[in-house]
Amino acid sequence: MGLTASSPVVLEGENLTMRFGGLVAMAEVAFTLKRGEILGIIGPNGAGKSTLLNIITGIYIPSSGEVRLEGERLNGVPAHKIVARGIARTFQSSRLFGDLSVLDNVIIGRHTHTKAGVFDAIFRRGRAKAELDAAAAHAETLLKSVSRGLHEQRHRPAGELAQADRRRLEIARALATDPKVLLLDEPSSGMDDADTDALMDDIRAVCAQRPDLALMIIEHDMRLVASLPHRVMVLDYGQKLADGPYEEIRKIPRVQEAYLGRKAAQHAGA
């Protein structure tokens, strides 16, 4: 299980271009993501990393090119339907429902797997309640599997959580949608080394439990990029600069320049 050479492609992008008026935020980017694969995306600020995530999740509609999930075109599908098809995400600046409990946040992640509407809620309460209780039970199990500490805090308002737990909760909430592809936007931002290590362990555990889940991680923390992804894609000025294993990527001068600074890069090259 997990990633093998014959794993099928689950998500792919082709010629993705995104223009905002005259500004080209992304130009002809192509990528593939295989089942069970972890793809890291790096690049300096403004390179188009978040734009790519927003295109995949339907928040932006690309000016040209297309995104396909298991061969089906996603362009123009509204964001909330893309979630139902199996793409979940987290946000760089955590966007939890801060005034709701931790558990409620995860239950909201079950939205696409529950059906009760206004009519059911009022006139078929038993059915609606059973469905929601099942979602709550599912959410509890999920929280426990992602992080015991988080599970113990499940009745606290999400807004009161510490930074590291907020990230874990965002991941748990995204996992509650039962995704095929999970997109993490800078999961370690604002964390110290110890928190980042714990986060990496949690992500590994999540992947071990779900060998078919494909992950795309935008990251700046090179320790994470070096150890977690199978493959790394480099974006720069909205274009794809490179795509390969970390060992190859790190030798590219432009990457060294971006992450180590120009002088250090020259030094490393010499």
């Binding site: 909330h80 339907k81 139902a84 966007r95 429902f97 801060g98 696409t112």
Partner: peptide, 12 residues
């Protein structure tokens, strides 16, 4: 709380 986050949980 957050419209964008709500959309990204599949809420129309």
């Amino acid at each position: 709380t957050d419209e964008l986050a709500a959309r990204c949980q599949g809420i129309n």
